[in-house]
Simulated assay, not measured.
Amino acid sequence: MAQLPLADLAQRLLRKPAHALDPEERRVLDSIDSGTIVSRDAADEADARSSLGDRLADRVAAVGGSWGFIIAFTVVLLGWMLLNTDVLAHFGMAFDPYPYIFLNLMLSTLAAIQAPVIMMSQNRQAAKDRLAASLDYETNLRAELDILRLHEKLDGIVLDRLAALEAKIDALAKSVPTA
């Protein structure tokens, strides 16, 4: 197929003027025009765009939202309480006796820091999902347009063959003697 300007491709395939194209549609038409592929891995794209803070937020959310963290944190809390209630209290050295005010302060601080970090990770995941949807749309649009172009080519081949058959029929009709 001869390369067509973007405006011609937009009008012929999408029935839109070039200035009305979305960025995804423009990328698809550019890839059709250049003969390149349009599909990309959303995870790779998101990782390439992520900052150090984004990756750190993902790690904190992955660790903080795991059973390993919950079990380890429970063991630490029970150890803290046991240590300050029985072991150190027995020697009069408990640094945070019941009602564990220092432990409550540390838990509140952890929650105050961990919650926004987890929210950042969720926002990043939502951005990844939007990127994946956009890339899926581009791939689906490219596939749909390629199928449409194949239909046009097949229709052209069928019309050419019909025209050739009509010409042969006309030639045969002219060559048959009339009685």
Results as ranks from 00 to 15, higher is better:
Ala2Lys: 04
His151Val: 00
Arg12Phe: 08
Leu77Phe: 10
Leu162Trp: 06
Val60Arg: 00
Trp80Gln: 01
Val38Glu: 10
Ile70Asp: 04
Gly35Ile: 04
Leu107Trp: 13
Val75Met: 06
Glu152Thr: 12
Arg40Pro: 11
Leu172Met: 13
Met1Asn: 03
Arg130Gln: 13
Thr36Ser: 15
Glu166Asn: 14
Glu24Ile: 15
Asp146Thr: 01
Gly79Ala: 14
Asp44Ala: 15
Leu14Tyr: 02
Gly92Asn: 03
Leu6Cys: 05
Leu148Lys: 00
Val38Phe: 06
Arg124Cys: 08
Ala126Met: 09
Asp22Met: 15
Leu78Arg: 11
Asn123Arg: 11
Leu154Gln: 07
Pro23Asn: 13
Met106Gln: 13
Arg130Asp: 08
Ala61His: 02
Asp129Pro: 03
Gly64Pro: 03
Pro5Met: 08
Ala115Gly: 02
Gly68Val: 06
Leu159Pro: 09
Ala173Ile: 01
Val158Ala: 08
Leu52Cys: 05
Ser134Met: 11
Val38Lys: 10
Ala20Glu: 13
Trp67Gly: 15
Gly79Thr: 10
Arg149Trp: 07
Thr74Tyr: 11
Leu150Cys: 02
Ile32Leu: 03
Gln11Asp: 10
Thr178Leu: 06
Ala115Gln: 01
Asn123Ile: 05
Asp22Trp: 14
Leu77Met: 13
Gln114Ser: 11
Arg130His: 14
Gln11Arg: 05
Glu24Ser: 12
Ser108Pro: 07
Ala126Glu: 12
